[in-house]
Structures are given as C-alpha cells and as structure tokens.
Simulated assay, not measured.
Amino acid sequence: MSDAAAATVLVYSSRPEVRAAVRTAVGRRPASDVGPVTYVECATGQDVVDTVDGGGIDLCILDAEAQPTGGMALSRQLTAEVADRPALCVLIARQPDRWLAHWSLADATLPFPIDPLTAPAVVADLLRERVGRPAGLR
C-alpha cells in the first residue's frame, strides 16, 4: 500500500442519486498511487461555498445540471472568490457543453452519466496535482 496522502473530495448535486453515482464510480481509492478518498456531499450551492471556505477540500466535483445553482456557476464563483481553491471538476450531460465548462474555469470535466472507467483516472490526475503540492503552493 502506498503512503500517498489522503484526500477529501466534495461532491455537489441537488440530486442524491448523482452524488451516489459519483462516489460509486470513483471509489475510495481511484488509483494505487493516490491516497484514500473521503467524500463530503453538498446538496446546495451555499453548502459548497461554506464547506470550501472552511478548508480541507482537495477536489470539488460539481454537477452542471444541479438546481437552482449549477456546478459551472459555482466553479466560476470559487475561482473568483477563493484564493486557495480546490481542484474543480464539472459533470456535464452534453459534450457540446465543454465550452461552458471551459468558461467556468474548471480544471476538468466528466461526462454524465458517469463512466466508472474514466472517472477514477480523471479524479486521480486532479488529486495527484493538488495533494502532491506543498500547502504554500496550492
């Protein structure tokens, strides 16, 4: 077993089944060289902002289709307002929406429905970049 640092992943969606699908697809350890993942779930945009403001989040996976606040708007808001923001990944239902995800300043996108083969690799890449950096460089 690797001595990789544990990571905290925030999963945001107004729909509990979407949050469950993300947790299931990514799993507790998305790659052998990435530490174990602990999940924090948020059902509202304000919960996301409050949780990120509290610190300790390494990655946010944000549902672009969430209501009333979509994940792309939250991604853009977190980028503008949080100096040491976590890595951001947006779930998109339509591939043509990738340009909107780019506008949102997200670090990555995942298609929804979530692919259990792709999702762990994307999450592991984001966590390697985020958790591997010293705190002063995040």
Rank of each mutant, 00 (worst) to 15 (best):
I57T: 06
Y39A: 04
V49I: 15
A25T: 06
A25V: 09
A93I: 01
R138M: 02
L62R: 04
R23Q: 13
G56R: 09
S104F: 02
L59T: 00
M72N: 12
C89K: 00
I92L: 13
T44A: 09
S13T: 11
A87M: 11
A21Y: 05
E129W: 08
D115V: 07
W99S: 10
D125L: 11
L105G: 04
F112C: 10
A66P: 03
A4F: 01
T51D: 01
T51L: 05
R19D: 03
Y39F: 14
E129N: 08
G27T: 10
L117I: 07
Y39E: 05
A66C: 10
A31K: 09
L78E: 09
R23W: 00
A7S: 15
A66K: 06
T69E: 14
R138S: 01
M1E: 09
D97K: 05
G70C: 10
T8P: 00
T44K: 07
D50C: 06
R19Q: 08
D47M: 13
I92V: 14
G27R: 12
E81T: 14
A64D: 06
P16S: 14
G45P: 03
I61L: 15
L137R: 14
T24R: 15
A20F: 05
V122S: 03
A43R: 13
V52C: 04
M1R: 08
Y12N: 03
T8V: 15
A64Y: 00
T79R: 11
A106T: 01
P96S: 11
D3A: 04
W99E: 12
T79S: 11
A119V: 05
D63V: 03
D63E: 04
T44S: 15
D53N: 13
S32P: 01
E129S: 12
L10R: 02
T51H: 01
E65R: 11
G27L: 11
P30V: 05
V37Y: 04
P111Q: 13
A83I: 07
A101N: 08
R128I: 02
G71Q: 08
E41Y: 09
L117R: 15
D97P: 07
R29C: 01
E65H: 09
L110G: 04
A66Q: 06
S2H: 11
E17N: 14
V122C: 05
A66F: 07
D58R: 02
Y39C: 05
P36D: 14
R76E: 15
T109F: 08
R28C: 03
P134A: 08
A124K: 04
G71V: 05
A73M: 10
